[in-house]
Design a protein around this nucleic acid. Structure first.
Ligand code: MN
Ligand code: MN
Ligand code: ZN
Ligand code: ZN
Lengths: 133, 133
DNA sequence: GGTATTATTGCAATTGAGTTGCAATAAGTC
DNA sequence: GACTTATTGCAACTCAATTGCAATAATACC
């Protein structure tokens, strides 16, 4: 928590109540803006969606949050303080599971086979969770 | 070309001028609806965007076209008559390069490490093309 | 503490991709 | 050619995300 205050003020940004509340409602599971908004509403915290968008965009820039999008194209956000990992998404109910993979070999192969200077990659898996199987 | 007429009529669909023109403007490089629309305009072929959307959705269902989305969230479409492959996208200019990788090992590892019944995956690489390097 | 400065917020309006309803049009069939 | 019905184009709409701007609140300075 102090960590993010540091990160903010070091860039001339301010630690505000909305930013604190949004940060407190982030998770290691990716969430959409709508989901974060709902969580805040349940806690009787009134924050406009625009503020959530702007805050998350800023958190991404500061490396506090990671943004991804799956098949449905809407952005989802999760805390960035975890080791590099990927997700398995249920085609039926949308449930998300983390998955750790050793993809070094694959990335190395990609770098070798491509004329591009490869910097990053997206990798997600889709299927059915236990309940939906 | 006859191929797609078969596929269409076998499902009770019709081969129309718009569908022919849209098919003729598909490529092995992923294109957005806007890009396809522009190509058609340059050829003085007047087809509404809605028709392009509906046609592509149908082509996807028939297995003629593959739909993907990269970082910018808009859908892109490419011909499906090619072997399974992935893409490298330039972060600067959007150029796309095909890349073939042997990901069997990775997919097997994912299936092993996950509680889900994995059916498919998305894998894309990002970086800088030669020009933008 | 109180005041000045300026980052931040909330609201309303806007953008842009994609979808839907429906009447007019054009394939396929006989 | 006439009939049936899939398809098209237009307009209206949805929904995530962005933008402009005046009101508000966090920091800095006294
Ligand atoms: Mn995760
Ligand atoms: Mn390709
Ligand atoms: Zn499920
Ligand atoms: Zn480039």
């Amino acid at each position: 928590m102090i960590l993010i205050k540091e990160k903010l003020s070091s860039q001339g940004y301010r630690m505000t109540k909305p930013r604190q509340a949004i940060f407190a409602n982030l998770d290691h599971e990716p969430q959409s803006v709508a989901e974060i908004s709902d969580r805040l509403k349940k806690q009787k915290i009134k924050i406009d969606k625009v503020t959530i968008y702007r805050t998350l965009t800023q958190f991404v820039k500061l490396g506090i949050v990671e943004e991804t999008q799956f098949k449905d194209k809407i952005s989802v956000y999760e805390l960035a303080d975890q080791e590099h990992h990927h997700h398995v998404i249920c085609d039926n109910c949308g449930k998300i599971e983390d998955i750790c993979l050793d993809e070094k070999i694959l990335v190395a192969a990609a770098k070798k086979n491509s004329s591009f200077k490869i910097k990053s990659h997206h990798l997600e898996f889709f299927g059915l969770c236990k309940k939906c199987c």
